[in-house]
């Protein structure tokens, strides 16, 4: 943990003591962290640790019980609409329409983010070119292999050039080669200045992040760069770090790769 910028403009996500209660159950318990612009921020935790609840609060899908959070400079309580215009989101579940073609999906999602026809046309051509989907452009998404769907889904999530993209376990069920390609897309997006907030189950992916936080039972138990964490716990890889931190968990299953 070094260079914390004094300039708040550099912080695209600012979270302070954010909590979410479901009647008596505390899903997220006073989490605090910042994410810098263009950073790839890994959000780790066992199943049931509260990751999805946290990400939903940050996206404006779920109202926080208490605490503060500013996303892209906007307040989660009062400016949900502005937040929505400035973020992209890809959920755990595959999130394109299977019965629409590749092009139709791109046009639809571009359309609801208010892109003009001209923008849509050039964006579609570029996206299809980048992903090498020229021959599949007119095919239904359901006919694509899962890996391509996930890459397409990510590209669609950042079609409107959001400041931040939230990825909730984007590579679930995808083979290692495709996962690698997927991460190349993430790096490209980060280079363009898009902040990437990603939850994952795969510890090799955690290594790709600039910084990671590890959530246990609704609290953030560790937050640092992967190398600092390995050093701190004196273990060779992230798997071991995760195990050390998460083994005290009271809820969820403790196997991160499950």
């Amino acid at each position: 943990m070094k260079e914390k910028p004094d300039n708040n403009q550099q912080l695209t996500i600012q979270v302070e003591e954010l909590s979410k209660h479901f009647s008596h159950f505390v899903a997220v318990d006073k989490i605090t962290f910042d994410v810098q612009k263009g950073e790839i921020f890994g959000f780790l935790g066992a199943n049931g640790a509260g990751k999805t609840t946290a990400i939903r609060m940050l996206c404006g899908l779920s109202a926080p019980t208490s605490g503060k959070a500013r996303i892209a400079g906007f307040d989660v309580y009062r400016q949900a609409e502005q937040i929505k215009k400035n973020i992209g989101y890809m959920s755990q579940k595959f999130s394109l329409y299977e019965d629409l073609t590749v092009t139709e999906n791109i046009h639809f999602f571009g359309g609801i983010y208010g892109l003009t026809d001209k923008q849509l046309k050039s964006k579609t051509r570029q996206l299809i070119g980048d992903l090498g989907l020229e021959r599949e452009a007119k095919k239904l998404v359901s006919s694509l292999p899962l890996g391509w769907k996930q890459k397409l889904s990510f590209s669609v999530a950042i079609l409107h050039d959001p400041q931040i993209v939230f990825l909730d376990e984007p590579t679930g069920g995808v083979d290692p080669v495709t996962r690698r390609q997927f991460w190349n897309l993430i790096y490209e997006a980060a280079e363009r200045g898009i902040t990437v907030f990603v939850t994952t189950h795969y510890m090799d992916e955690a290594e790709y992040c600039k910084r990671i936080s590890i959530m246990v039972d609704g609290k953030i138990k560790a937050l640092d760069t992967p190398s600092n964490l390995k050093q701190q716990f004196n273990v060779p890889d992230m798997d071991a770090v995760f195990y050390q931190i998460a083994r005290g968990a009271q809820r969820g299953d403790k196997n991160p790769a499950a």
Partner: peptide, 13 residues
């Protein structure tokens, strides 16, 4: 069910 509702709710639509 398919999860697209989440995507729609996150969009400014």
């Amino acid at each position: 069910e398919t999860g697209t509702m989440e995507i729609l709710l996150v969009s400014p639509f």
